[in-house]
Design a protein around this nucleic acid. Structure first.
Length: 312
RNA sequence: GCCGAGUUAGCUCAGUUGGUAGAGCAUUCGACUGAAAAUUGAAGGGUCCACGGUUCGAGUCCGUGACUCGGCA
C-alpha cells in the first residue's frame, strides 16, 4: 500500500499557522486537523485565540470544540482520534493538514508514538499525590528508581507530575513504564512546514494579541465560566490568559497587571513550544512567516513533495 | 540653599562585624509517550555612580564631586 500524504504546519503561537493552513486548505480542497490541546474545549474562545466561526465554516476543521472542560482530553485520546480522522480524510482522497501549537500532540502523530494503554487512574493518581505529600516526593522518586530505573533516568526527580505518571502506569499495569512506550514509523508520507519569526517580532505580536483579547471581552468570558462553575480547580482551565484574569477578578491584581502577566507567560510558553521543533531539525522546511510569498512558497513545497497543486 | 534618604545584573532590590557579590522577574538554552498553554531543569549577564583616602585587603569605613527622590526654606 502506498503511503498517503500528510502535511504538517508547525511553529509558535501567533506565527500565523492557522491562517496559512486555511488558505492552503481552500486552495487544495484539504481538511484541517487541529493539534491544539486548548481548541478541543468548546468553552474556551477568546483567550486561546480560536479561529473565528467564519474561518471554521470556510474549511472543514477537525478536533476543535469536541470536548468540554469537565471532560478533559489527553494525549492518548488525541492520538487515537487524530489518527483515525487523518486516515478517513485520506480515504476521501483529500489532503489532511495537521497544525497546532501543542508540540507533544504533533510529535505523537509524526513519530507514531505507541502510548501505554493504561490511562490516568483518578484514584491512584490522587493517592500517589497524597503519599508524595506525606513521605516526600524524593521518596516517591526513589521508589520509581527501584521499580524502573530506565524511566527514572529519564525524569528529573523534582518533576512530581512525570514521576507520578510513571508510577501510575507501573502500578496499574504491572509492567515497566519504560517498556510500554515506543514509536513506530508513521504510515504517512509527511511534509513538515515550519513558520519562523524573529523572537522580537513574535513578542510584539503577542503583546498586541493579548491587548486585543482583553478588548474583545476576555474578562467577561472568564467571568461567565466562573459563574457556570468552571473554576481553576479544573485542570483544563489551567490556561494562560484565564488564570491571570481569575486572579484579577478575585481583586488580587489590576487588569493591567493581569495583562502584563499574560504577555509574560505567553512569551515563556513560546520558548517552551520551540523545544519541540528546532531550527536545526533537518525534516522541517522552515519558511519565513513574514515573507509575502509565504503562501506560494508553501504551495511549491507541497507540489514538489506530494505532486499536489491547486486546480485552476 | 539647607537637612535627610538613595545610586549594586536589562528591571525591582538584598548584601551580616571590611575578605573582589546574590535573589525575584526579564533573557537564552534544555527535558517531555494518556494533565502538555501542563510540569520541569540549566545557563549567560555586574568598572557595586566617579575620583581620592584609610587598610595587607573597600560594595561595605572616611572625604569630595555628580545624579535621583523626599522634606524645609
Amino acid at each position: 500500500m502506498i503511503e498517503k500524504p500528510l502535511l504538517l504546519i508547525v511553529g509558535p503561537t501567533a506565527s500565523g499557522k492557522s491562517s496559512l493552513a486555511i488558505k492552503l486548505a481552500r486552495a487544495l480542497d484539504a481538511e484541517i486537523v487541529s493539534a491544539d490541546s486548548r481548541y478541543l474545549y468548546r468553552e474556551l474562545e477568546i483567550g486561546v485565540a480560536k479561529p473565528s466561526s467564519a474561518d471554521l465554516a470556510s474549511v472543514k476543521h477537525h478536533l476543535i470544540n469536541v470536548a468540554s472542560l469537565t471532560n478533559p482530553w489527553n494525549l492518548g485520546l488525541y492520538k487515537q482520534s487524530a489518527t483515525q480522522i487523518i486516515s478517513e480524510i485520506q480515504l476521501r482522497n483529500r489532503l489532511p493538514i495537521l497544525t497546532g501549537g501543542t508540540g507533544q500532540y504533533v510529535r505523537s502523530i509524526l513519530q507514531n508514538w505507541q502510548i501505554p494503554s493504561h490511562g490516568p487512574v483518578g484514584q491512584l493518581r490522587e493517592d500517589l499525590e497524597t503519599i508524595g505529600d506525606h513521605i516526600g516526593f524524593d521518596k516517591l522518586y526513589e521508589i520509581l528508581s527501584a521499580l524502573d530505573p530506565q524511566a527514572a533516568a529519564n525524569i528529573d526527580y523534582r518533576n512530581h507530575r512525570r514521576t507520578i505518571r510513571a508510577l501510575e502506569v507501573i502500578l496499574s499495569s504491572g509492567k515497566k513504564f519504560s517498556d510500554l512506550r515506543d514509536k513506530e514509523k508513521p504510515p504517512y508520507t509527511t511534509l513538515i512546514i515550519g513558520l519562523e519569526l524573529q523572537r522580537e517580532v513574535l513578542y510584539a505580536r503577542i503583546d498586541e494579541r493579548v491587548d486585543a483579547m482583553i478588548s474583545q471581552g476576555l474578562v467577561g468570558e472568564v467571568q461567565n465560566l466562573l459563574d457556570a462553575g468552571s473554576g481553576p480547580a479544573l485542570e483544563a482551565m489551567r490556561v494562560i490568559g484565564y488564570n491571570e484574569i481569575i486572579t484579577h477578578l478575585r481583586g488580587e491584581i489590576s487588569l493591567e497587571e493581569a495583562a502584563a502577566l499574560i504577555k509574560r507567560n505567553t512569551r515563556a510558553y513560546v520558548r517552551r513550544q520551540a523545544n519541540w521543533f528546532k531550527p536545526t531539525d533537518p525534516d522541517i522546511h522552515w519558511l519565513n512567516a513574514q515573507d509575502p510569498a509565504l503562501f506560494e512558497n508553501a504551495l511549491d513545497l507541497i507540489e514538489s513533495n506530494f505532486g499536489i497543486k491547486p486546480e485552476r
